[in-house]
Design a protein around this nucleic acid. Structure first.
Lengths: 155, 155
DNA sequence: TTTGTTATGTTATATTATCACACAAATAAC
DNA sequence: GTTATTTGTGTGATAATATAACATAACAAA
């Protein structure tokens, strides 16, 4: 990820989450908020047990279930995505919009970029129609090298 | 999956694998062949530890590593795909061809359908170009209901 | 305030996957 | 053909990921 003021990312994510939960009347408890904050510590995906370690500084009694419950909630609300390829979790940039997401996961710097593209959605939709398949959840993930890491070192 | 003679699927998969390994000069050992055979027992994806249980009838000394090593080999040769969403494994229908695959995973009957579509490949390729991202591996998986299960019960 | 619901604490355990090291089998080099 | 090298397997331990089950606490609704 390029140079940027990450506090802006973090604060934006948190205030959006505040607003979203308020609007939906769901409880954005301290644990849930803290887990989201930890996930947004950077633009890399985070492992559940790393979250747990970090969470313990905030709540010494945190256990695996503590983290997984918070993650379940955050995912359900669309605030966090699960990265299936890495068994890890990443903050959602556009929690209000429902769309087909494509994750570009850099193997070098571990940054995960969330993209959405009408072309992809379109291709998927027509394939689903062809197959007469009803989608409930989708995972589109690509592992590789991001622009920065790719050009810096070559393949 | 509809009514079909599954022996044909199984035998086709195994003889293709025989030929492919021969051609590549890689060793298609009894364990590797048996694991592939077990994976092709049906058109559902199979869990590693279920494979292990089944493999024990063939080789009583089988351990987790036995299965994971065989899977590593089969995946490397393109004979098997890992279904990330389910932590499971499925036989590849077209091990000779390199393409972007889309897996349609039915939550009801657990059948996994492997599809490839130029439209999707095209959409992905142009998105990668836009992002200047170099892909090394891709995962496109959709969970939902297949034609049969969808129409049988409704949503 | 009682009641029902949702969230958390806690312990245990299930599931998925890898490591490390010894040994055996196949292949390659001589 | 014997030796060396590489590749595959046996085995035990353990790491990493995730859920179950049940008790208690906090909140919301009546």
């Amino acid at each position: 990820m390029s140079v940027h003021d990450h506090n802006v990312c973090l604060n934006t994510a948190l205030s959006r989450a505040d607003a979203l939960c308020e609007r939906r009347g769901v409880r954005f408890t301290p644990i849930r908020r803290k887990v989201l904050e930890l996930i947004w510590a950077n633009h890399e995906s985070t492992k559940a047990y790393d979250l747990l370690e970090a969470l313990k500084d905030f709540d010494a009694s945190a256990k695996p279930a503590t983290v997984y419950r918070a993650l379940d909630f955050l995912i359900e609300q669309g605030l966090v995505h699960r990265v299936e390829t890495l068994n890890a979790f990443i903050g959602c940039k556009q929690p209000d919009i429902r769309h087909d997401l494509l994750f570009l996961i850099c193997l070098e710097c571990h940054t995960v970029e969330e993209r959405s593209t009408p072309n992809l959605s379109q291709a998927v939709a027509s394939e689903l129609a062809l197959a007469q398949f009803t989608a409930e959840a989708q995972t589109f993930e690509i592992l590789g090298r991001c622009q920065t890491c790719g050009s810096a070192k070559g393949p």
